[in-house]
Amino acid sequence: MTDADIVRRVRAGDTAAFAVLVARYRDRLGRYAVHMLGDREDAEEALQDTFVRAYRSLARCEEERFGRWVFGILVNRCRTAGRRASRRHRMFVRDDVSLARTPAAETADRADWDETVRWALGRLAPVLREAFLLKHVEDMEYEEMARYTGVGVSALKMRVKRACDRLRVLLTEVERV
C-alpha cells in the first residue's frame, strides 16, 4: 500500500492506519533526529511530536509527498528540541543502543570512530550541523533544503562549506593526538 493510499484512509477516519506510516518512517526520520540532537531520548521525543503534528495537519499534506512533508516537520521540531537541549547542557552522549548492536570484534574501533564523529558533529553550531546533515547525509538539493529551513540557497551553500571546513579541522586535530 502506498503512502498516498494510507493518507487517504486516515483522512477518511481510519486512525489506526496511521500506525503504518509511523512504522514506515520511524527509523528513517530517527536517524536525522539522533544525529541532529545527539541524544536518543530527545530524538524520540522530537519524533513523537513530529508524528502527532503530522496527524493533526494531515489535511494539508499532498498525498504523494508524505515522506518529504513529514521530514519538514521533523526539521522544525529538531530546531525547537535542540534549543531546549542546549539549555540543559546534555548534548552528544554515547549512543549505547547502537554500540550494543555492533559485533564484539569491531566494537573498540567502531566505538572510537563513533565517538569521534559524534564529538566533531557536536562541536558544529546547530545551523551548520543542520545544513551538513541535510546536504550530505539526507542527500538533498539546495532548493529543497531552502524550502525546509527558510534559508536562502547561497547562505545554505556557505553553511555547508563552513561545516565541512570545521569538521576537517576537528578530525585532523583528533588524528594528530
Binding site: A16, A23, R26, R31, V34, A43, E44, V52, S98
Partner: peptide
Amino acid sequence: IEMDPTLDARVM
C-alpha cells in the same frame, strides 16, 4: 539507525 519500536504505540 533502529529506533525503539515501542515508539509506535506511544505515538498512536
